[in-house]
Design a protein around this nucleic acid. Structure first.
Lengths: 193, 193
DNA sequence: GTACCCAAACCGACTAGTTGGTAGTCTACC
DNA sequence: GGTAGACTACCAACTAGTCGGTTTGGGTAC
């Protein structure tokens, strides 16, 4: 991919975007955290919009890679969804990645540069498609049962995850996230409970 | 409450906050929209944090008034929840209030002034409590049936609404919101479907 | 070996514009 | 004559981004 410094800038930018959103982080903030002069950041990422888009692109690539790995390693589609949700619960609990960058950018969407908006939309599309695919596979295997269309249930699940993230941030506790997403998964499980 | 100009500033500030979030709107923006000089805004709202807090306070007061009205006018608790959701669906469809200010501020919470953070938390608390109260009343009346505790189901419903708002903004369509919240309501309805 | 070239990485100094906020003044009204 | 509301003029701090220049390490021709 790119050099080590570019990688460090990307990582720091993501952390700042997650903490503050797009317009509340600056090149000066990154400069301080990465210990590099401000103009040098422009050398790696000429514009702020380009940097934010790169952060989102990397985030989406990790999503795709992560879900593909789940598809390979876990046979049961319901447990794949559980693993996805548990991954986020860990991130929120440990405060390593306390929010999804793309979801946060989604909230600020109208004020974002077109370049960044496009990346946000791609993330929602990619996540929605994986959820729908996985739900359908679960129904086929008899481990998931749905009351509505797979598309609707996928959107419902995504909304539950994003909404639970919001509540977790507002209340300052990962418990809400665990409880809400846990209930959402239980609801579509075909196993008796 | 206050004077007419203060009211206009509040209204404009809310619209800007909903569109852009906290840090991406400025006194200059309000000045242009309301047609008043920038320092005159400081006369009504000395600080930006105070203005944002006032916007959230007003928003919460409308929430409390609105839900109290629903409690009085609609006997069936399930239909009260439906009315609440339909209100938002209309706002999103007509793009009058395309997002909940408090939810958006919740996403940006860590970067907000303490004063504003407190108001955001109060909103989540007030909404959660009304949802829980209404769910319990519905169970008592036999129009709602729950699979989990009322507290969990209230948090689930709130997450569905906020997550659906996010998806609606990201996709630019109110359909997602209608479908997701519709499914969430159907799920807790005691009526056969 | 060494003289040369090049591109990537980096930096100090700077720009034009914006930010939230202040000081002091003017005016209209009770 | 006091007060509320609005104004002009201003401030220091910060914003993304630019400019010209230096350092560095790797290739390459002689």
């Amino acid at each position: 991919m790119q050099g080590e410094m570019a990688e460090r800038i990307l990582k720091t930018a993501q952390a700042l975007m997650i903490e503050r959103g797009y317009s509340a982080f600056s090149y000066a903030d990154i400069s301080e955290a990465v210990e590099i002069r401000k103009p040098s950041i422009h050398h790696h990422f000429p514009t702020k919009a380009g940097l934010a888009a790169a952060v989102l692109r990397a985030h989406r690539e990790r999503l795709v890679e992560g879900t593909e790995q789940l598809d390979r390693q876990i046979e049961n589609p319901w447990k794949r969804l559980q693993a996805y949700v548990q991954y986020w619960e860990g991130c929120i609990r440990e405060q390593t990645i306390p929010f999804c960058v793309a979801a946060l950018m989604g909230a600020e969407l109208p004020s974002l540069p077109e370049e960044v908006q496009a990346e946000v939309r791609l993330h929602f599309k990619a996540l929605g498609e994986w959820l729908e695919r996985t739900l359908k596979a679960g129904v086929k295997m008899g481990v998931i049962k749905l009351r509505h269309s797979a598309a609707t249930e996928a959107q419902t699940l995504m909304a539950a995850v994003h909404g639970a993230m919001l509540s977790a941030r507002a209340t300052g506790s990962s418990d809400v996230f665990r409880v809400v997403t846990g209930a959402a998964l239980k609801r579509i499980s075909a196993a008796k409970h």
